[in-house]
Simulated scan of single mutants.
Amino acid sequence: MPIADAAVLRWTNQSDPNAAAPGDADRLHSLNLDQRVVSVVSFEGEWSRIRFGAEEFRVRKDCLMPIGSVAFEVGDSVNAAGRSCTIRDAIWHFKDAEPNFYLEAGGKRLSKRFKVDDLDPV
């Protein structure tokens, strides 16, 4: 499903834990989500509520680089190269200024990266 408000999450193991809401910093550190394309769900005071697949977090706005809308998000079903797949990861490619999508099909991770033009919604 298209994401109307997408952003690139800038969160590394060196990020200030106070830049995430209480309880979210440890989960962000453990998942290593730096440079991931996330959906911005809402704004709650100083926090931006973001979603990456089934996970939701609250981070400060300065942890995000807005990128506008993107066609797919983690968890979406797509067709790629004649196969039915699920998007397992979305990483921002800074040089190309677009997301790279990583897929799985039949429970197996595909090693190739895909661009939005390679994918068709199911």
Rank of each mutant, 00 (worst) to 15 (best):
1 M>A: 11
1 M>R: 08
2 P>Q: 07
3 I>N: 00
3 I>P: 00
4 A>I: 15
4 A>R: 15
6 A>R: 06
8 V>K: 06
10 R>S: 13
11 W>G: 00
12 T>H: 02
13 N>W: 09
14 Q>G: 07
14 Q>W: 13
15 S>M: 01
16 D>A: 08
17 P>K: 01
18 N>P: 00
19 A>E: 06
22 P>D: 04
27 R>F: 11
30 S>N: 12
31 L>R: 14
32 N>W: 14
32 N>K: 15
32 N>G: 14
34 D>I: 01
35 Q>A: 12
40 V>R: 03
40 V>W: 00
40 V>K: 01
41 V>I: 13
44 E>F: 07
45 G>V: 05
45 G>Y: 02
47 W>M: 03
48 S>G: 07
49 R>V: 15
50 I>F: 07
54 A>D: 15
55 E>G: 09
58 R>C: 12
58 R>V: 01
60 R>Y: 06
60 R>M: 09
60 R>N: 00
62 D>I: 00
63 C>N: 13
63 C>R: 12
66 P>K: 10
69 S>Q: 15
71 A>M: 10
72 F>L: 06
73 E>Q: 12
74 V>C: 09
75 G>W: 04
75 G>T: 08
75 G>E: 09
78 V>M: 01
79 N>A: 15
81 A>D: 00
82 G>N: 13
83 R>I: 02
83 R>D: 09
84 S>M: 02
84 S>F: 04
85 C>P: 02
86 T>N: 01
87 I>Q: 01
88 R>W: 04
91 I>W: 11
92 W>H: 07
92 W>M: 08
94 F>C: 12
95 K>H: 14
96 D>I: 14
103 L>M: 04
104 E>R: 11
104 E>T: 11
105 A>H: 10
108 K>Y: 14
109 R>I: 00
110 L>N: 00
111 S>V: 01
113 R>C: 03
113 R>H: 11
113 R>P: 00
116 V>F: 11
118 D>M: 05
120 D>W: 11
122 V>G: 07
